[in-house]
Lab assay of single mutants.
Amino acid sequence: VTLFVALYDYEARTEDDLSFHKGEKFQILNSSEGDWWEARSLTTGETGYIPSNYVAPV
Rank of each mutant, 00 (worst) to 15 (best):
H21S: 13
D35L: 13
Q27M: 14
D35R: 08
E15M: 12
H21E: 09
D9P: 07
L7R: 03
S52Y: 08
K25L: 15
S52R: 13
E24T: 08
D35E: 13
A39D: 00
D16S: 15
W37V: 06
V5C: 07
E11P: 05
T14I: 06
A12T: 05
R13H: 11
S32H: 11
F26I: 05
G45L: 08
Y54D: 02
T44H: 04
Y8L: 09
A56G: 09
P57F: 06
Y49L: 14
L7E: 04
D9K: 04
T47P: 02
P57C: 07
G23E: 04
F26N: 00
Q27Y: 14
L18H: 02
L7T: 04
Q27A: 10
E46P: 00
E38S: 09
N30I: 06
Y54A: 13
A6D: 00
S32V: 10
N30G: 09
K22L: 06
G48D: 00
Y8Q: 09
H21Y: 12
Y49D: 03
E33P: 11
L29D: 05
Y10Q: 02
R13N: 10
A56D: 05
H21V: 15
E38G: 05
E38C: 15
L7G: 02
E15P: 14
D16L: 14
W37G: 01
F4T: 04
I50A: 01
N30C: 08
F20Q: 00
D17E: 15
N30S: 11
E11R: 09
F4V: 13
R40L: 13
D16N: 15
Q27E: 14
E15S: 13
F26G: 00
D9T: 06
D17R: 14
E11Y: 09
W36T: 06
W37E: 01
A56S: 10
T14H: 15
V5P: 00
E15I: 11
T47R: 09
E15T: 14
G45S: 06
E46V: 10
V1Q: 14
L29N: 05
P57S: 07
S31Q: 15
E11D: 11
Y10A: 02
G45F: 07
N30R: 08
V58Y: 12
S41L: 07
L3V: 14
A39V: 12
P57L: 08
E33I: 11
A39M: 05
R13F: 10
T47A: 07
P57T: 06
S32D: 11
Y8T: 06
A6R: 00
L42G: 02
V55S: 01
T47N: 05
P51I: 03
T47F: 07
F20H: 00
G23L: 03
S41A: 07
W37K: 03
P51N: 09
V58P: 04
L29P: 05
S19Q: 04
A6H: 00
K25E: 09
V1A: 13
V5G: 03
Y10D: 00
E46K: 15
F4R: 03
L18V: 05
N53A: 14
Y54I: 06
V5H: 05
Y49I: 09
A39Q: 00
S31W: 13
V1G: 15
K22V: 10
E33V: 11
G45R: 04
T44F: 03
L3E: 11
V1Y: 12
L29E: 05
A39R: 00
V58C: 10
I28H: 01
Y54E: 01
V5F: 09
L29Y: 06
A12K: 08
V55L: 12
T14A: 13
L29M: 09
S31I: 12
E33Y: 13
Y10E: 01
T2W: 11
Y49V: 08
T44S: 10
I50D: 01
E33M: 14
F20D: 00
A6Y: 01
T44C: 04
V55T: 04
F20K: 00
A39I: 03
T2P: 14
L3K: 06
T14L: 10
Q27T: 10
A12Q: 06
T44N: 06
E38I: 15
T47S: 10
N53L: 09
R40K: 13
R13C: 13
D17V: 14
Y49H: 07
S52D: 03
E46L: 15
W36I: 08
I50Y: 00
I28E: 01
W37H: 03
L7Q: 05
E46M: 14
S52C: 10
Y8W: 14
V5W: 06
W36Q: 07
V58H: 08
D16Q: 13
H21Q: 13
G23T: 02
Y8G: 05
E33K: 14
A39G: 06
L18R: 02
S32G: 10
L29W: 05
A56R: 10
K25W: 15
A6F: 01
E15D: 13
I28T: 02
P51Y: 07
N30K: 08
Y54G: 06
W37I: 07
V1D: 15
R40S: 05
D35N: 10
D35Q: 12
T14N: 15
A56L: 07
K25A: 07
E11W: 09
D16K: 15
T44I: 01
S41I: 06
T47D: 04
G45M: 08
V1C: 14
E24L: 01
G34F: 11
V1S: 13
G34C: 12
R40E: 07
Q27K: 09
G23F: 05
D9C: 08
Y10H: 06
S41C: 08
S31H: 11
R40D: 01
A6C: 02
G45K: 06
S41K: 14
F26M: 07
T43D: 11
P57R: 07
R40P: 00
W36Y: 12
S31E: 09
W37C: 04
D17Q: 15
S41W: 01
D35T: 12
T14M: 10
L18K: 02
T47W: 08
K25T: 12
R40T: 13
L29Q: 05
A39P: 00
G34P: 14
S41G: 03
G34H: 12
D17Y: 14
S52L: 05
A12R: 08
L3G: 04
H21C: 12
R13D: 09
Q27F: 14
G23N: 06
S32M: 13
L3C: 10
K22M: 08
L18D: 00
N53P: 05
H21D: 06
T2L: 14
S52V: 09
G34L: 12
L42S: 04
L42C: 12
N30Q: 08
T2K: 11
S41D: 03
S19P: 05
V1K: 11
W37L: 08
E24I: 02
P51V: 02
L42Y: 06
R40F: 09
N53E: 10
E46W: 08
N30W: 08
E46A: 13
I28F: 04
K25N: 07
Q27W: 14
N30V: 08
D16G: 15
L7F: 03
V5T: 06
V5Q: 08
S32C: 11
Y8N: 06
S31T: 13
E15C: 12
A6N: 00
P57V: 08
L3A: 07
F4W: 14
S32T: 13
N53T: 11
G48V: 02
T43F: 10
S32P: 10
R40A: 05
L18S: 01
T43S: 13
F26A: 01
G48A: 03
A12F: 03
D16V: 14
P51C: 07
D17K: 14
R13L: 12
F26H: 00
S19D: 05
A39T: 02
E38V: 15
R13I: 13
D17I: 11
N53K: 12
E24G: 02
S31D: 14
E24Y: 04
Y54V: 05
W37Q: 03
S52F: 07
S31P: 09
S41H: 07
T44A: 02
H21A: 10
P57N: 05
A56K: 11
D17N: 10
W36E: 04
F20P: 00
G34Y: 10
Y10K: 03
G23Q: 03
Y54S: 10
T43M: 10
E11S: 11
G34R: 12
Y10N: 03
K22W: 05
W36R: 15
F26C: 01
L42N: 04
V58M: 12
F4K: 03
L7V: 07
